[in-house]
């Protein structure tokens, strides 16, 4: 047996071995959708075969039936419209205030450090813990619910707006100044449009937070609203309606995400 001599030159011929494969996963939307449908089908089958206790986990068909009944009886609209109103008011108020402070923090020295200090201190407080305080301050009417949502929306908006303003290239601002634009014109025509991508990204976050807080906000004094509906169903161990309410909340989140996606597409098509 001859062993190859390590010092002899090695002969090469043939194709060069390919070494750059992998690390590039492809997106297959059909696979995603099919998986979700498959899981739901499995869930339904499990319930029908008696493997899943319907008390603890209602099957998809029961949830769909509960949703249908809610829609037909008008209950769904009653709760949904009440929540929608609170979301609209609370989110808008928190967003407007957050945009204003975020801009100020991003642009002025007076407000930058104090503003960021206050926001950083108050932001981590779980809003759910503040609900009893809000009741004392604002009562159990609509006010405390709108304020809870506004509060939860305010802080991420400030942070994202300030970050967006910071991200506007200083060279663009100098360019505006060099062409004699006023401070107001620079803010309106350069800073705000430049911060818009960050602001819209922030909207995705705050919209999700608002929907999550809806349940907390509607805990006190609400006899209507998706959040209060979910709470009541949970309390009564009415798991079919509980899951139906959760599905509605989930769909609300998806709808908001879709709308924001379209908004981004339209406003940011220059990217």
């Amino acid at each position: 047996m001859t062993t190859p001599d390590p010092h002899a030159p090695v002969q090469l011929s043939g194709p060069v071995p390919f070494r750059a494969g992998g690390f590039a996963p492809r997106v297959i939307p059909l696979a995603g959708a099919a998986t979700l449908i498959g899981l739901i089908a499995l869930w339904q089958a499990g319930a029908m075969a008696g493997l899943i206790d319907t008390l603890f986990l209602p099957p998809p068909f029961a949830i769909a039936t509960a949703l249908w009944n809610l829609a037909v009886s008008g209950e769904l609209w009653k709760h949904f419209s009440a929540s929608l109103m609170r979301l609209a008011i609370g989110w808008s108020a928190g967003t407007v205030a957050g945009l204003a402070l975020g801009l100020a923090v991003g642009l002025t020295t007076i407000l930058r450090s104090p503003g960021m200090a206050v926001v950083s201190a108050l932001f981590p407080i779980p809003k759910i813990a503040l609900v009893p305080l809000f009741i004392i301050w604002f009562g159990i009417g609509e006010g405390s619910k709108d304020i809870t949502l506004a509060f939860g929306v305010f802080f991420p908006t400030v942070i994202n707006t300030a970050a967006g303003v910071d991200a506007v290239p200083r060279s663009l601002i100098r360019m505006g100044q060099s062409f004699g634009l006023s401070r107001a014109a620079i803010i309106a025509k350069i800073v705000l449009p430049g911060a818009l991508p960050s602001i819209l990204a922030g909207f995705r976050i705050t919209a999700a937070i608002a929907i999550i807080l809806l349940v907390a906000a509607e805990m006190i004094g609400a006899d209507r609203g998706i959040g209060s509906f979910v709470l009541a169903a949970g309390n009564l161990y009415d798991t079919d309606n509980l899951m139906a309410g959760i599905v509605v909340l989930s769909l609300m989140g998806l709808a908001v995400s879709f709308v924001l996606g379209r908004l981004e597409k339209r406003l940011l098509r220059w990217r």
Partner: peptide, 17 residues
């Protein structure tokens, strides 16, 4: 319309206009 005008190394164009 403006006494000074600058041309920048990195062009300084607003991407959204």
């Amino acid at each position: 319309l403006n006494p000074f005008a600058t041309v920048f190394q990195d062009f300084a164009l607003l991407p959204w206009r």
